[in-house]
């Protein structure tokens, strides 16, 4: 009788990959950095969605946040670009190959200062990609200067007191007509994962402004970008659950208690009401929410605004579905006869 050997098989997803297949190199960020937690949630999201790593491209700009793509999805192609310029590189890459899914990781310096122009225009063109801002209100790599999202009148050891009002990146995304605007907190990994999964399924620019504390330069209790402040002041708009496509949504909920948001690929985001009624498809309500959250010093998290009716950039450009990189020389170079015809017009 043959001996049965028990081997513990690694848990795999629908495409037969283990979570380890989605990991990246070891992080060189500070221990406890919010960014590391977000990297883990990106790994979880991609694994749970069963996306093959080569079908994703990961991009970033410059800064602590922008280093992080080296620490997740090690088997994906990636591009660590220039400070504030990741949106343009992502645009070129994803237009050239629209079969790829894009995830960009940026920071508050990378997006709200040097990259504000490119951010707004990315959103305006509605390039399908997940755009994550790891927002900590401070420049870490250069040792603690205020960023444009830093709190008004906040005092930091290195930078002194900040006399300026913060930029609200969700508000910026909204005014640029973004169809998927979310805010989350690195200290709420479940919500981060569910929102990233939904963002991957959205056929347009999905902006996630994630408060991601900098444990070295900006984690004091009074900072709105600290862990303790986030934990105390987070006020989720709803309980967020991503429901994969083809899976029937089977939940027992009271009508009016849960909102279902349908994503382009057939999946959905289920938003279970918590305290108050909130309709993420109401743009005016979204703007009001952001204003009130700031005034009341509340970290309102969840899906702030949703609109799936806008055409993606590639569709606006009436492009073929096939990657342009797959075009053969014959498909790229028009015929000799066509050249003669064109030149006739110049005789």
């Amino acid at each position: 009788m043959a001996t049965t050997v028990e081997t513990r098989k690694a848990k795999v997803n629908d495409v037969g990959l283990a979570k380890a297949d989605y990991k990246g190199g070891p992080s060189t960020l500070c221990a406890g950095c919010g960014h590391n937690s977000i990297s883990s949630q990106i790994v979880n999201a991609a694994y749970e969605l069963s996306i093959r790593p080569h079908e994703i491209i990961k991009l970033s700009g410059i800064g602590c946040s922008s280093k992080s793509p080296a620490y997740f999805l090690g088997k994906s192609h990636g591009f660590n670009s220039l400070h504030g310029r990741m949106p343009s590189v992502a645009t070129g890459a994803l237009v050239a190959n629209r079969s790829l899914k894009g995830i960009g990781v940026s920071g508050d310096g990378d997006t709200a200062s040097i990259g504000m122009g490119q951010f707004v225009h990315l959103v305006r063109r509605n390039l399908p990609m997940v755009y994550v801002i790891e927002n900590n209100g401070v420049y870490g790599l250069t040792k603690g200067q205020f960023s444009a999202t830093a709190d008004h009148e906040q005092t930091l050891k290195y930078a002194g007191t900040n006399p300026f009002m913060p930029v609200d990146l969700c508000m910026e995304a909204l005014t640029a007509n973004c169809g998927f605007v979310a805010r989350s907190f690195a200290g709420d990994p479940k919500q981060v994962t569910e929102l990233i999964k939904a963002a991957f399924s959205f056929d347009g620019t999905a902006v996630l402004d994630i408060i991601s504390p900098c444990v070295t330069f900006n984690d004091r209790d009074e900072s709105t970008k600290s862990y303790s402040w986030g934990r105390e002041h987070q006020d989720p708009l709803h309980d967020v659950t991503y429901v994969p496509r083809y899976e029937e949504i089977q939940v027992d909920y009271e009508p009016g208690e849960t909102t279902i948001v349908r994503l382009h690929d057939g999946s959905a985001l289920m938003l279970k009401k918590l305290d108050e009624e909130y309709d993420p498809t109401d743009r005016s309500a979204a703007i009001q929410l952001l204003d009130e959250a700031r005034a009341n010093q509340v970290l309102a998290t969840g899906l702030i605004y949703f609109n799936s009716d806008q055409a993606s950039l590639q569709d606006s450009e009436q492009m073929i579905k096939r990657p342009l990189s797959e075009l053969t020389p014959d498909e790229l170079r028009p015929s000799q006869e066509s050249l003669q015809e064109v030149l006739e017009g110049f005789k």
Binding site: S88, A93, N97, Q118, H121, L324, S325
Partner: peptide, 28 residues
């Protein structure tokens, strides 16, 4: 009936070349 190309008017020259580099990387 669909384009096998894209021509995009960028918001500035920084973005114009950034897009071109992204596309060059992706094989266009």
């Amino acid at each position: 009936g669909k384009n096998t190309y894209a021509v995009i008017q960028a918001e500035d020259e920084l973005s114009a070349i950034g897009m071109a580099i992204g596309a060059g990387w992706a094989g266009a």
